[in-house]
Write a protein that binds this DNA or RNA. Structure first.
Length: 496
RNA sequence: CGGGGCGUGGCGCAGUCUGGUUAGCGCGCCUGGUUUGGGACCAGGAGGUCGAGAGUUCGAAUCUCUCCGCCCCGACCA
């Protein structure tokens, strides 16, 4: 057997390593439908964890859930000019509503639709149409709605979790009476995403506005959180858009103000998707497979009974059962510890490696020797597969939550240190060119103006301005391309 | 859409150039046995109309034509 469970390793072939991790962890696989993935139970369980936490955060910030149709009339999409331009090239279109059996036994679409329907690539237009109906008075505002849904974007080159033709996400859509309030909402939701990424996914992010060329079609301002993957590339992990009055004007979303004046609403939208699963994989996983931060792990720990004879097995299973009960009574991150016993009749080594590859944070093995000592052998996914520690059974319910917290924090620290080690400050166009020729390139913090002129420098390097980080002190400087004064550095990187 | 590559049991592949016994191999799966604090070993077994269609031929996974699908590179991807 090779030293590592995943082949190739990250260093050998990063993209292939990613695919193999997804496969070895049994998260998802490609489907008969081009560009669409099947999310398998383990992958979906991770998504459900993410959903649960985010949904709670949305509700805590005053939002409610609703559901809007999958289909959008073609004419709706045409309402906002930039929006059409941005999405037109990647839409699935429904033109018929019936099938008839042809003479050769094949099904033929019939019943042509009067107006084609677009499968939503995003829902601004259909939701805006409803908001136009619902909102009449300033007393109706703000409207703060989120929906959990699937969307379809006909991508040219799909990649499991990172870019699939159909994906799951949430999209928040809000309408406000004032510009200030909508802008505040946009920032607030970015903050929710950043907190979730760093606290729950243990994934450090840079947050701030995108340059004009990278904005959501139809948005006045797009804020994003950007994470660094282990190959140094950036991944946009969440976005929050200030839509100004663009959609309100296109869709007549108006309200009567306190003085009887009719005004357009100010709207926002924000979303994160199953891409976050890809982000977690590429942030934490190693050459033995998936590594899950405890807060989003479907199971915090798995108990593995070890026995040879039937008598031993009975005693060991009994002990496992008791331990599972006492551990489940403990809590981590405000929830009961999630623990399961894997008593399947398969070889011990296979079983252990399955759990390693699936990213379970902690493995607890109980065999006759442990039982005699009144202890269990504990191994952690963030350490070597054979680094074990004996812990008295009575102490485990108190120790496990501490260990989970250590793992959660340790994963964040490790990712932050990695990002730091692959970040540089550059002062000239020549330095940028030189830096991105290196194969260990990462984030370059550079003074650049938000100006199309910088494309001449960045395009050949396949580098983009990821965002203009909003945190930290202002650091004015001159743009390395235009020579113009800018208030702070931007983050440049290659991106997924 | 342009360039390249590939379709053979669940997965990974050999065989195709040079047509010819019952289409092989590794992993996985099932059964039995020996094992067991670590991804075991031995034996037996199941599973394939070789992407689809047409053609050449006594005979096609192999040659010819058409079609379909997938992968990689590019274009594209708020």
């Amino acid at each position: 057997m090779p030293a590592n469970a995943i082949s190739p390793t990250r260093a050998e072939d990063y993209p292939e390593w990613y695919q193999q991790v997804v496969r070895a962890a049994d998260l998802a696989e490609t489907s008969p439908v081009r560009g669409c993935m099947v999310i398998k139970p383990h992958g979906y369980a991770v998504w459900e964890r993410m959903q649960g936490i985010l949904d709670g955060m949305f509700k805590a910030t005053g939002h409610v859930n609703a559901y809007f149709p999958l289909f959008i009339p073609l004419s709706y999409l045409e309402q906002e000019a930039q929006h059409v331009e941005g999405f037109a090239k990647e839409c699935a279109v429904v033109t018929h509503h019936r099938l008839e059996l042809g003479p050769d036994g094949k099904l033929i679409p019939t019943g042509k639709l009067e107006e084609p329907l677009v499968v939503r690539p995003t829902s601004e237009t259909i939701i805006g149409a409803m908001y136009a109906k619902w909102i009449q008075s300033w007393r109706d505002l703000p409207v703060l709605i989120n929906q959990w849904a699937n969307v379809v974007r006909w991508e040219m080159r799909p990649r499991v979790f990172l870019r699939t033709a159909e994906f799951l996400w949430q999209e928040g859509h809000t309408a406000h009476a004032t510009r200030e309030e909508a802008e505040e909402e946009t920032r607030k939701m970015l903050e929710v995403y950043a907190t979730f990424a760093e606290r729950d996914l243990a994934m450090p992010v840079v947050k701030g506005p995108k340059p004009a060329g990278e904005r959501f079609p139809g948005a006045v301002d797009t804020l994003s959180i950007e994470a660094m993957m282990q190959d140094g590339k950036a991944l946009q992990a969440g976005t929050s858009h200030f839509l100004g009055q663009n959609f309100a004007k296109a869709q007549k979303i108006t309200f009567a103000g306190p003085e009887g004046n009719e005004e357009f609403c100010w709207t926002t939208s924000w979303g994160v998707s199953t891409r976050l699963i890809g982000a977690v994989i590429m942030t934490h996983s190693d050459d033995d497979g998936l590594v899950l931060p405890p807060r989003i792990a479907p199971h915090h720990a798995v108990i593995l009974p070890i026995s040879r004879t039937d008598e031993e097995r009975a005693a060991v299973l009994e002990a496992c059962c008791q331990l599972q009960g006492s551990l489940a009574a403990a809590s981590f991150a405000g929830e009961p510890v999630r623990v399961k016993t894997d008593a399947r009749d398969i070889r011990g080594g296979d079983k252990v490696w399955q759990h390693i590859k699936q990213g379970v944070p902690v493995r607890i093995e109980i065999g006759p020797r442990d039982l005699a000592a009144g202890a269990a052998s504990l191994t952690r996914r963030d350490r070597g597969p054979k680094e074990r520690e004996a812990i008295p059974l009575a102490e485990l319910p108190a120790r496990l939550p501490e260990i989970l917290e250590e793992i959660q924090q340790g994963l964040f620290d490790r990712a932050a240190a990695f990002r730091e080690s692959r970040s540089v400050r550059l002062e000239s166009a020549a330095e940028v060119t030189e830096y991105f020729a290196r194969d260990d390139a990462g984030f370059a913090w550079v003074h650049v103006a938000d100006d199309p002129a910088i494309a001449a420098l960045l395009d050949p390097l396949k580098v983009t301005v990821r965002c203009i980080p909003q945190d930290g002190p202002d650091e004015p400087g001159t743009c390395i391309v235009t020579g113009r004064e800018v208030p702070r550095r931007s983050v440049l990187a290659r991106a997924y």
